[in-house]
Computed example of a mutant assay.
Amino acid sequence: MTGPIGADSWMDVAAYAVVGIPALVASLGALRVAKKASAKQEAIGQDVSVVREHVANTHESNLRADVDKLLVGMVEVNRAVGRIGDEVRDERAANASDRREMWAHIRRQDRIADKHHPDEP
């Protein structure tokens, strides 16, 4: 064995190259993937910071609690709108009944007028 790596001939050096070069290429590939992953994690971290600023800033209440209160309020608004719709429907029905009654009175008055005043238009 001669030299620091223990290679006795060029064939030994070639054997070390055959074993070492793929390992070197794999290591460089892994390093490249790790750098890309690190850059992506940094970008995601910045995005999370922006989201955190909007969600958990100086408010005294939690965002989820605020959303739950809004949902309860929306249910109450939907109920109120439903009641208003029911009232409008009832008013329309009452108005339709009043209109029918009014037109019945007008026809009756026209018949009376035609009976007692046949020559007048």
Results as ranks from 00 to 15, higher is better:
P4D: 00
P4I: 03
G6F: 00
S9H: 12
S9L: 02
W10E: 12
W10I: 14
M11W: 06
D12P: 02
A14G: 00
A15M: 08
Y16E: 14
Y16S: 12
Y16W: 06
P22I: 04
V25F: 05
A26I: 01
G29Q: 10
G29P: 01
A30G: 04
A34C: 06
A34P: 00
K35H: 06
K35A: 12
K36N: 06
A37C: 01
S38D: 14
A39R: 14
K40E: 13
E42Y: 13
A43I: 02
A43H: 00
G45N: 07
G45I: 02
D47H: 06
V48C: 02
S49C: 05
S49H: 04
S49P: 00
V50A: 04
V51W: 05
V51T: 05
E53K: 04
V55E: 02
A56L: 07
H59V: 02
E60D: 11
E60T: 15
E60L: 06
S61H: 04
L63R: 05
L63S: 06
R64A: 08
A65G: 05
A65L: 09
D66Q: 15
D66I: 11
D68C: 07
D68F: 08
L70H: 08
L71A: 13
M74E: 14
E76G: 15
N78K: 09
N78C: 09
R79H: 07
A80M: 07
V81L: 11
I84P: 04
G85N: 14
G85S: 03
D86A: 14
D86T: 08
E87I: 06
